[in-house]
Design a protein around this nucleic acid. Structure first.
Length: 618
RNA sequence: GCCAGUUUAGCUCAGUGGUAGAGCAACGGUUUUGUAAACCGUAGGUCGUCGGUUCGACCCCGACAACUGGCUCCA
């Protein structure tokens, strides 16, 4: 994404706030150059909520250095230096870079190496420009604000490491992040918003509500334990998926969590493509003592598709069997890098809302479209509105050779990409097309969403596979009496339980609709009168008889205390009962976050609860 | 995996080179209640793990682990 060059036209359209932030990145660089003159700068663009500058410097910059750097930056802002643009001939840019003059306060003994590299990569057709503020000269296409004094408020936020040009073969640079605003008020509002977002963080709410636990000491990092309340949500989602898939003509299957190495050598996930993300194999016999190592090694599955392919292969198939839609909430294990694990959003054991649709080419468009429709149906139920569909296609230059990334089937790539694109266009779904991001076996459509912290995630996926069925030799007998290889659609509209629930926790801030709420109803008694206790218990019994997750709080707490506890636990519906209600056969209804809505006959309330759950009322 | 930071009671957090504290939760008792916290008491921690420095380490140093924020990667 970043390696796509912005055109000069794009740059001229850069919004004021981005200009300001980019200008602030220059001010940051000015300060760092003053404090550590050996600093070598790479890129310093504006980003979503601020800016960063990548720098290579012998000093390890830590947040403790921020006050010192900020002080220097304030001096530059206060000096109100003009950002002066100078267009220079290419030869001069190369010469200045050699003299270490770029992104620096003066000439240096060593070249400005990253700037030099950047100059060399600027197309001949583009002019080369500097921006100067005071003595600091940086290679930059701009645009900037007029003067450093236009930067009203700024703050350095974090330091991270980043590879030059995002490539892990390149040197690691220190990336200093900051944010900047027109004025102090807007910056304060931004930090207040961040605090609010932290309160919604699924890790925090998950712990408060007792949904899941991460026991990295005994179970392992990234291997969540679903607590009873979280399991209730997991099962509601599975129920939704099973009903939806049943209605859409899917059939359910069950497969083991492990398979022999041969499975993944055949699928193509081993030896290269998935090796790093699979847990190491279980070896049943010592390799030295066995002539048949392949048969002896088992892997935890990182995906369900190969097992499903073997189910397809388990019986002879006719064109009459197609489309065959095999669904399973399969548990997969992926050895994600330790630094990548994030609460439920990125884990090492995952339950995927998986299914594989085997179909003919003629059936493909309708099936693919039906999957997209299913996504939209789900998103409507959850009120998910902020997402984009990302259509990932292949890069023809990577079909073969050392950096091959995609199966070498140019015609099939073109055919399926055209088909998928047409489905997207015809169904008027908004999407962005991203080259070079496809799965190795075919193009895919991912649904991208954002966590409260602003991190982007793939929530759901819909992938075309025209390669792996052939590797497994999957065939169906067609009308014309010929054996043909089916196309396969891999789809997971509800993603994985882990990520989907992680997302839903933040989406709802823990205030789930009744059908999904871990504790749907709590009956709160006023007093401990024996008849009242029996009334409470009878209500709970009745609700639980209809599979409603209901509890009673019969403790000796005062009613205000019970309400406080239930509200904090985010219980969806509270039924308060006292002597008055007992006599009238009523319950006083209070909804989480909405307060009391008054007393109603018990039967009416129970019926409404059941109805709301049945229709999955938002 | 890489860079930086963090790790004290179940949770949220104080704290000092001389072997630790608060609030909430838990438990026990008292209270008997009308829509966001009744009162009193008890218990709970080899201060992430392992090494080192020191007369003495929760505090200083090192290694490791986990977590947090990024990078690369991905459902």
């Amino acid at each position: 994404m970043d390696n796509e060059r912005k055109t000069l036209d794009d740059r001229n359209k850069m919004p004021e706030l981005e200009r300001l932030r980019h200008s602030c990145a220059h001010v940051l660089a000015t300060a760092i150059a003053k404090l550590w003159p050996d600093a070598q700068f790479a890129a310093g663009p504006p980003v979503e909520n601020g800016f960063y500058y990548d720098v290579e410097v012998s000093h390890r910059i830590s947040p403790e250095d921020f006050p010192k750097i900020e002080e220097e930056m304030k001096r530059v802002v206060k000096a109100n230096q003009t950002f002066e643009k100078v267009v220079v001939p290419r030869a001069q840019a190369l010469e200045d870079a050699q003299k270490g003059r770029l992104a620096a306060l003066g000439e240096r003994a060593v070249p400005s190496k990253f700037k030099l590299d950047i100059v060399q990569n600027i197309p001949e057709s583009e002019p080369i420009s500097y921006f100067k503020n005071g003595d600091f000269i940086d290679l930059c296409a701009g645009p900037h604000v007029m003067r450093t004094g236009n930067i009203g408020a700024f703050k350095l936020t974090q330091v991270a490491s980043a590879y030059y040009k995002g490539d892990e073969r390149n040197p690691q640079l220190q990336r200093i992040y900051g944010t900047a605003f027109k004025n102090r008020t807007e910056m304060d509002a931004y930090f207040a918003m961040l605090e609010e977002a932290k309160r919604r963080d699924h890790r925090k709410i998950g712990q408060e509500m007792g949904l899941f636990a991460l026991d990295s000491e005994y179970v392992g990092p990234g291997l969540p334990l679903w607590l009873p309340k979280g399991t209730a949500m997991v099962e509601e989602l599975e129920k939704l998926a099973k009903e939806t898939e049943f209605a859409a003509g899917y059939v359910r299957v069950k497969t083991p969590h492990i398979a022999k190495e041969k499975m993944y050598l055949t699928s193509g996930h081993l030896p290269i493509l998935y090796k790093d993300s699979m847990f190491p194999p279980m070896t049943l016999f010592s390799e030295s003592g066995s002539d048949d190592a392949i048969g002896d090694r088992y892997y935890l599955k990182a995906m369900n598709c190969p097992h499903h392919h073997r189910i397809f292969a388990a019986e002879p198939r006719s064109y009459r069997d197609l489309p065959l839609r095999l669904a399973e909430y399969g548990t997969c294990y992926r050895y994600e890098q330790s630094g990548e694990l994030i609460g439920l959003m990125r884990v090492r054991s995952l339950n995927m809302n998986d299914a594989h649709i085997y179909c003919s080419e003629e059936q493909f468009a309708a099936e693919f479209n039906a999957v997209n429709e299913m996504y939209l149906k789900y998103f409507k139920i959850f009120g998910i509105e902020k997402y984009i569909m990302r259509f990932s296609t292949h890069d023809p230059s990577r079909l073969s050779g050392d950096n091959a990334k995609f199966v070498n089937e140019p015609e099939l790539w073109k055919k399926t990409e055209d088909l998928a694109r047409r489905v997207l266009v015809e169904s008027k779904i908004n999407f962005v097309e991203v080259p070079n991001e496809a799965a190795f076996y075919g193009p895919k459509i991912d649904v991208q969403v954002w966590s409260v912290i602003g991190r982007e995630f793939t929530l759901a996926t819909n992938q075309v596979d025209f390669a792996v069925p052939a590797r497994f030799g999957l065939k169906y007998h067609d009308k014309d009496n010929l054996d043909k290889t089916p196309l396969c659609i891999h789809r997971a509209p509800l993603g994985t339980h882990e990520r989907f629930i992680g997302f839903l926790i933040e989406h709802y801030a823990g205030n789930f609709p009744l059908w999904l709420a871990p504790e749907q109803v709590r009956v709160l008694t006023i007093g401990e009168d024996e008849k009242l206790v029996e009334y409470a218990n009878s209500i709970v019994r009745e609700l639980r008889g209809h599979f409603v997750r209901a509890e009673a709080d019969l403790s000796s707490n005062k009613i205000n205390g019970k309400i406080q506890e239930a509200e904090k636990a985010r219980v969806h519906t509270m039924l308060v009962i006292g002597g008055r209600d007992l006599e009238a056969g009523n319950v006083s209804v209070r909804l989480h976050g909405k307060g009391s809505i008054g007393a109603k006959p018990k039967g009416e309330v129970v019926a409404d609860i059941l109805q709301a759950i049945r229709e999955r009322r938002p």
